[in-house]
């Protein structure tokens, strides 16, 4: 019942109530993987379904993602020790000069909710940081976001750097953000374009061969 309530609170985007429910469940001895898989993930995925069905608007999805994120911050330290199967590891960030990370935040939440381990490099990320992180994390996918038509042009340069660093064959590249299109994604040599958070999850799964 508590988990059912937690799922509802995540779907409805009630971060404070959701965090309380997580703490209550942990105090009751429910393991973190159960909290994640039986309540938090179905909760945020339900918000995604309601978005797809045109019932939810962006504020509703954002609030749901906020609730999910706040709950994750509580269970994450214990989750690392609890283990659990991961589909793949994603290193993600907004390219240098771009501070717009609202969409990326949604993508991170949805990827985590769908079984990916995500290393979020934040916004305004230089190529050297992407390269270091890809190497250090042994990532499967690198995701780059850009919101401005000036910063999006860096994606091509970044991918060329991945080639020079000998990383391109080892990693799948995804790009996303308001000005990005399928054609642009192909032009810069990415493997996939994430049109929105849900689309990104589906394509990331495909890239990992699990969809």
């Amino acid at each position: 019942m508590a988990l059912e309530n937690l799922k509802k609170l995540v779907t409805e985007g009630e971060p404070d109530g959701a965090v309380e429910e997580v703490q209550k469940a942990m105090n009751d001895g429910v393991d973190v993987l159960t909290i994640l898989n039986d309540a938090m993930v179905p909760g945020i995925n339900r918000a995604g379904e309601l978005w797809k069905e045109d019932v939810y608007f962006l504020p509703d999805v954002i609030m749901s993602a906020e609730a999910f994120k706040d709950c994750m911050s509580i269970i994450e330290p214990k989750l690392k020790t609890a283990g659990g199967e991961k589909i793949g590891k994603v290193v993600i960030g907004c390219v240098e000069g771009d501070m717009h990370d609202l969409g990326k935040g949604l993508v991170v939440a949805m990827l985590r909710a769908n079984g990916f381990e995500v290393v979020d490099l934040g916004a305004d990320v230089p190529v050297s940081k992407f390269v270091d992180s890809i190497k250090a994390e042994n990532a499967d996918i690198v995701g780059m976001g850009a919101y401005m038509s000036t910063t999006m042009t860096l994606m091509k340069d970044f991918i060329e750097t991945f080639v020079k660093e000998g990383l391109r064959d080892k990693i799948k590249v995804m790009v996303g953000g308001v000005p990005i299109t399928q054609k642009y994604s192909e032009d810069v040599g990415a493997d996939a374009w994430g049109q929105d958070a849900l689309d990104t999850v589906e394509k990331a799964k495909k890239l990992m061969g699990v969809a």
Binding site: G97, M99, D101, D124, T150
Partner: peptide, 14 residues
């Protein structure tokens, strides 16, 4: 506000 090398200055949304 963050001033990029080639991009329009933008607010630091963090």
């Amino acid at each position: 506000t963050v001033y990029g090398k080639e991009s329009m200055p933008t607010l630091d949304f963090k």
